[in-house]
Write a protein that binds this DNA or RNA. Structure first.
Lengths: 122, 122
DNA sequence: CAGAATCCCCGCAGATACTG
DNA sequence: CAGTATCTGCGGGGATTCTG
């Protein structure tokens, strides 16, 4: 039994899912990768995520200490996001998950298995 | 770009999240582990998941080929769930995630870090 | 540009009852 | 026991507008 932030978890997997199990969190972390991206760049990278959701999930990731937010006090505004060390420590696991997905489809359709698995290119 | 089951994914991470990113899927997979569990046992293991949700998520996992469903044709009914090989191939990754969660909290509160990380004991 | 705020819909998920 | 079926609510999340 684990207590954390007024929530009880019977397993640390539950805790982990609370941190990165949000609707878009894993994807955001993955696309951030080692990069530093502006809000608008993240939006372009994740067109399926509405701006509201993106902001919301980023706030939660920031509160969990997985994402850093750097604000340039200027007009027009400029905000950059990047992973914290804790966030970066997830990248290898996410990479494995990504690779697992590739293996999964290549098992089912051994013919057309020429896909790529990369998140962070400029 | 990946096409799979009439859905387009721009990254295999999206595909992976479609497979195991459901609200309870990772948890179900994790608690199944190497075990074979009856429906009622799964319910006891996951008290926060309603029976309806559990059934639904299990169906989706089954359709994805990650979970096997074995029906004893008898009365009263008996149904057992276990992971397929594809499902079991996820366990090491889930274990890493679980461990990551433990590290995460032990970083934040170095004092009370005496938790456990195990899903599958009878 | 990066968001906060507002409105509002619909579908997720809970509760309950029923069945083989 | 292991589900389906039905009803219902409420809040997640979309679309849009406004602001510093």
């Amino acid at each position: 039994m684990i207590k954390f932030k007024n929530t009880e978890y019977q397993c640390s997997m539950e805790l982990t899912l609370d941190l990165i199990g949000g609707k878009w969190k894993a994807l955001i972390l993955w696309y951030l990768g080692e990069n530093t991206l502006r809000f608008s760049e993240l939006r372009k990278a994740l067109p399926k995520v509405t701006q509201k959701m993106l902001t919301q999930q980023l706030r939660e990731l920031e509160e969990s200490g997985l994402v850093k937010r750097f604000i340039y006090t200027q007009i027009p505004p400029k905000v950059e996001y990047s992973l914290t060390e804790a966030g970066k420590s997830l990248l290898p696991i996410l990479a494995t998950l990504c690779q697992w997905g590739l293996n999964y489809i290549s098992q089912l359709e051994p013919s057309t298995s020429k896909h790529s698995c990369q998140a962070s290119e400029q």
